[in-house]
Design a binder for these strands. Sequence first.
DNA 1: CTGTATCCTGGAGGATACTG
DNA 2: CAGTATCCTCCAGGATACAG
Lengths: 128, 128
Amino acid sequence: MYERKIPITLDCGLDLIGEVLYGKWKIRMLYFIAEGCVRPSELQRKIPDASRRVLTMQLKQLEEHELVTKTIYPQIPLKVEYSLTEFGKSLLPVITMLGQWGDEHQERLRNVIEKQYTTTQMMSDQMV
Amino acid sequence: MYERKIPITLDCGLDLIGEVLYGKWKIRMLYFIAEGCVRPSELQRKIPDASRRVLTMQLKQLEEHELVTKTIYPQIPLKVEYSLTEFGKSLLPVITMLGQWGDEHQERLRNVIEKQYTTTQMMSDQMV
DNA sequence: CTGTATCCTGGAGGATACTG
DNA sequence: CAGTATCCTCCAGGATACAG
């Protein structure tokens, strides 16, 4: 029907990127680090819904995946900064595209998401 | 440091697209449907790791989010086909880009992922 | 300030068996 | 063939308290 416009290897590419981007806050963190929020406390402020523990964990994973670099300044109080590696920067266009699509279809998205939400609501209301 | 190259609204765009793409198999399903695997059984075959139940659930969500359309042919045995809406098709470039990035960095990705995996292994080995 | 150790919970997703 | 109903597991992520 769509005549295989997409080369098959993509399938595996999706796996791999999924591996690296998996984690509730990772994309956001990359995004904010790119924006200049390079210290954990800044990120924490930007993403208040995330717990400190998870924030740290996912930063560590990003580091293991070589998307960010961690720099420790041995001061009191401690100062830590994260920055994107070249590898990490190569991901920015992808993230930008994700965000742009969401942005461009903002209204429609809000509609369909809201609609689905209220449907769920109705169902749980009926449960009572 | 990176001087805010990315417009701030992206942040919300990321939320919205996340909402719609959230689900272990959704991106894959969209991808395969675009490729011409339009029947549930075909998708099931392409994604054998997914359970029938979840496959159906996520298809239903994609439908609610207006990314796919469901067509039922009242035959025995039943025949069902899914196809991308225009809205859904607008997502293809994004998916393609995701997959391409993963594809292009395939080797490096395999390395860092593998490395992290073995690290985890070592740790759980030490646990013993 | 940054990071770790514990404990706990929600809910996504799997297995299985069933209906139409 | 397509979909649903139950039941169950597992772990990502939150809360909290503490340490360097």
